[in-house]
Design a protein around this nucleic acid. Sequence first.
DNA 1: CTCGTGACGGTAT
DNA 2: TATACCGCCACGA
Length: 107
Amino acid sequence: MISNIQTLQKFYTIIYKIPAGKVATYGQIAAIAGYPRKARLVGYALKGMGERSTVPWYRVINAQGKISFPEHSEHYSIQKTILESEGIVFSKSGKIDLRKFQWEGRK
DNA sequence: CTCGTGACGGTAT
DNA sequence: TATACCGCCACGA
C-alpha cells in the first residue's frame, strides 16, 4: 500500500476514465496523474486494492502492450478474458496493438 | 539503516 | 525481436 492517499485517489480516478474497449499503460496513468517515470507506483496502487474494488484494473497493461502477469496465472487469464469481451484483440504473442487500443487519455 | 523485490519503462546492444 | 541494464521508489524483512 502507498501511504499517500491523495496519489492513490488520483490513480483510481484516472483509471475509472478508461473506456471499455481501450487500455492504458502504467506509465501513462502515472504521467497523467502528474508523476512521470513512476509507473511502478501505479502497479503498487493496483496491487494494494481489494478484490471487491470496482476499479477497472484490467484495462491497465504495460508499455510493451502486454499483460503484466505470468502467462499462465489466474490473473492473466481473467484479465485477458475481460479485455477480449470488451473487443480488445491479442496477437499470437499475446500482445495488444497500442496504436489501435490505447486510450488517448488526458487530464 | 541496508537490501531485495516488484501488476514498470527507456536505452543500448 | 529479444536480452540486459539501469533508473525509480514504496515496502517489508
